[in-house]
Design a protein around this nucleic acid. Structure first.
Lengths: 331, 331
DNA sequence: GTGAAAGCGCTAACAC
DNA sequence: GTGTTAGCGCTTTCAC
């Protein structure tokens, strides 16, 4: 059996209130008493039970970070940023995966309701807008990277439309006119916004948009390979491809290489996220980088502030940047 | 203000004890009463406060999974396995990162002491053996994939020595005699065991072990590139390389390709972990696969059983397997 | 089958 | 500066 605050009080010869005061530095305690208390704490190897504390204080100092899966390594730096910032404010970040499966996600969000956590940050969700809005009325939640239309839930992310626009504009600037895009059938808002950026960049450069230049399938790299095959079979093949994720871009590069294309300035590929693989790949892959660490820090800070009564909401956009690598380079 | 069990009791016209019974199915309650209670619960949109429950029951049904960082995607399937299995037993898995930084790890393990979590699973630790053993006396902890010598803490993993042995034996079987190894300066037990397997495989095949054929540096792929450069400068260059991680293997492949080596049967590379990149890479990389999902399920199950009073300890080994890809194939 | 009441470990108001 | 005490929301023993 572990020591409780009572045991410490008894040993130190003071009341439990005094122990609590020393523990929390919540009121003045005389130096002599403080020392006695600290000795008793050490002697009993006492650790406060947070269940008691949390129940009493109605808070846990834990923030839940929900990701669809940990397969996507770009979450790594976001998580790191959240953790560092949260720690600064006395909070811990716990991560869990929803597997993009509604019952899992609902179970985890139930932890807001049963007070297991103080807040939740969602990096993607399978909930509908209504459920999400309803939830945000009563609990402290935020979205990270993946926005929801028609909801003013606090959301920290980049401007996906502009990021895609910049990527495609760059492809145009190095001479491409027929530019394919690899997207997903799942209409995630970030994907839709990236498609819009692609379309705007073409339009501004007087290139007619042709729906057939967008290939949509799943998220994994085999879809990128399928995309490369698809583009290869077209009459007017694209000479460049913009993919909404690095996995897809890698698939395109892999298959295009097999098909004999010479990846670089002549046949260019741009991905999205700047996961570590893009640098390790041969050829290395040009990509759009999200400021993951900053995104993580920002969303954690705002969520902590919301827990303390503030009311940040709506979108907070941070700056993306293009990272230039071999897949768009002159040889 | 949220509804509490008292509010529900009042509305349903019964005692709080009865509400609790209905909630937990812990004792017989008449059908009529049950219905009244359920109606009141629905009417008030009541959700039990787990802080109260947890305090009273002295448990949280939460298991903490600690990883050094989420950069290593091979944790993904382990986590998934843990989650699925834990859920079956009514537990949730929360993950947090230690950044291989002792204060962070200690803070997180403090959650065992302050009862924020019921158990912890460590996929790597920076704690010393004594601290770890001491901790395991009083709390429910387990190690996953990364063992500790001289500790009988429950550990679920593969036989790293045998896995490395198998990989190197395979390289020998396809004709290699000069085989380099890429390891890390940090003497993680799993790395040491893999080095031992490498040495045993050479010995059994009558190949003299030469310390210079082991290149040790850091974990990331640039170290793999350095290794390739190092091996390339040797008089009797290796014709094959076994790396203790896929990142290192990818670095070797990348640099060796740049140096003009033709990766495959003639110059072979084997990695470790089977992260998704090994399949996406060009050439795809032969590697040792750990049964991650099974490892996750197993450690979660054993930990849950330990929470309920059992005393599993020591090593539990699961089977690895070699995944053959282009980096060891005939062209 | 149901209720009363104790109490999990802690904090914080209030009294002195 | 310190102690007394109520009570956070829940489960569970013990009566009936």
């Amino acid at each position: 059996m572990e020591a409780t605050i009572k045991d410490v009080a008894k040993l130190a010869g003071v009341s439990v209130a005094t122990i609590s005061r020393v523990l929390n530095n919540s009121a003045a305690v005389s130096p002599e008493t403080t020392e006695k208390v600290n000795e008793a704490i050490k002697a009993l190897n006492y650790k406060p039970n947070f269940l008691g504390r949390n129940l009493r204080k109605r808070e846990t100092n834990v923030i839940l970070a929900l990701v669809p899966s940990t397969e996507q390594t770009y979450y790594s730096q976001i998580l790191h940023g959240m953790q560092i910032e949260a720690l600064n404010h006395g909070y811990d970040i716990f991560m869990s995966t929803t597997n993009s499966y509604r019952p899992h996600e609902e179970r985890l969000l139930g932890m807001l309701k049963n007070r297991t956590v103080d807040a939740a940050i969602l990096m993607g969700t399978v909930l509908d807008d209504v459920t999400l809005s309803e939830l945000s009325k009563n609990y402290c939640i935020a979205l990270c990277c993946e926005p929801r239309q028609g909801s003013d839930v606090l959301t920290v992310l980049i401007d996906n439309e502009k990021a895609a626009y910049d990527a495609v504009k760059y492809l145009i600037s190095i001479g491409h006119r027929r530019i394919g895009m690899v997207s997903t059938e799942v209409r995630a808002p970030s994907s839709v916004e990236r498609e819009n950026g692609y379309i705007r960049a073409l339009g501004e450069s007087g290139i007619e948009f042709d729906e057939r230049y967008i290939f949509r399938d799943s998220y994994d790299y085999t879809s990128g390979m399928k995309a490369a095959e698809y583009f290869n079979r077209m009459k007017n093949r694209p000479t460049a491809v913009f993919a909404i994720s690095d996995f897809l871009a890698a698939g395109v590069v892999k298959k295009a290489t097999e098909l004999g294309f010479d990846i670089g300035r002549e046949f260019s590929v741009i991905g999205f996220d700047n996961i570590s693989m893009t640098e390790m790949y041969t050829p290395s892959i040009t990509t759009v980088e999200q400021p993951c660490f900053e995104i993580g820090k920002t969303v954690a800070r705002l969520v902590v502030e919301n827990i303390s009564g503030q009311n940040h909401k709506g979108r907070i956009c941070l700056d993306h940047r293009l990272v230039f690598r071999q897949s768009t380079e002159k040889k």
